[in-house]
């Protein structure tokens, strides 16, 4: 049996955000490691400085992140509710998690997201908000002491975000035995095969046979 874990609009938003974010991470790290003034292959291709590309794509991410607040408030509310929920079995689930990523024998949990996903959601959304807010601030402020504070926030958030996203990709890519096939929940129709590793959760819909 196959289940649809996320709606089509949620999958589209996820794809838009991660494509923009990966581009921003690439150009951001290019600038962070001191390659400013040396056009990256993308900058050479588009004929624009990397800093300018970073700013323009950053505006794109800000719009993509704000759109759901206008167009999908119920979805955002459901995401927040499921992310911020706490259940009695959460700690037990987290304690069994290191072994379960290898064996696939996860403890039972309540809600749409498992406790690990909830922590990842808080970290990813929190850091995205910090990056977008400080990024907009940097574009508007241009220079001075406030710029220094915003630049430090943006840089530190980039370091933390890179680590969190690397972990998220490791889990979502399905490299770990316990998460095999997890990447399908957001790609190729979003239909996940239900087996011992990926169990049915509240909010999952049975996928139509397409």
């Amino acid at each position: 049996m196959k289940l649809e874990r996320y709606s089509r609009s949620a999958r589209r938003l996820h794809t838009a955000v991660y494509l923009l974010t990966l581009f921003l991470l690439a150009t951001g790290w290019w600038l962070l490691v001191g390659r400013e003034g040396e056009p990256s292959p993308v900058a050479r291709l588009l004929g624009l400085p990397d800093a300018a590309l970073h700013v323009w794509v950053g505006w794109g991410l800000a719009i993509a992140a704000l759109l759901p607040l206008v167009l999908a408030r119920r979805g955002v509310a459901a995401f927040m509710r499921e992310t911020l929920r706490r259940d009695p079995g959460d700690l037990g689930w987290l304690l069994r998690w290191p072994l379960a990523i290898v064996t696939g024998r996860f403890a039972r949990h309540e809600g749409h997201f498992d406790p690990g996903q909830r922590i990842a959601n808080v970290a990813i959304v929190g850091l995205l908000v910090a990056l977008i807010a400080s990024g907009i601030g940097l574009v508007l402020v241009h220079f001075g002491p406030v710029f220094v504070v915003l630049a430090a926030v943006h840089r530190l958030a980039t370091f933390a975000f890179t680590v969190v996203i690397a972990g998220h990709i490791l889990v979502a890519a399905g490299i770990l035995p316990g998460y095999r096939g997890a990447w399908r929940s957001m790609h190729l129709g979003g239909r996940v095969r239900i087996d011992q590793r990926l169990k049915r959760r509240p909010g999952d819909r049975e996928a139509s046979s397409r």
Binding site: G37, L48, F143
Partner: peptide
């Protein structure tokens, strides 16, 4: 937080090479 300078060699100020 201070300003800095870009030096452009035989290209315009909109170039990414400086």
């Amino acid at each position: 937080g201070n300003h800095h300078v870009h030096l452009y060699f035989d290209v315009g100020k909109d170039s990414g090479d400086y």
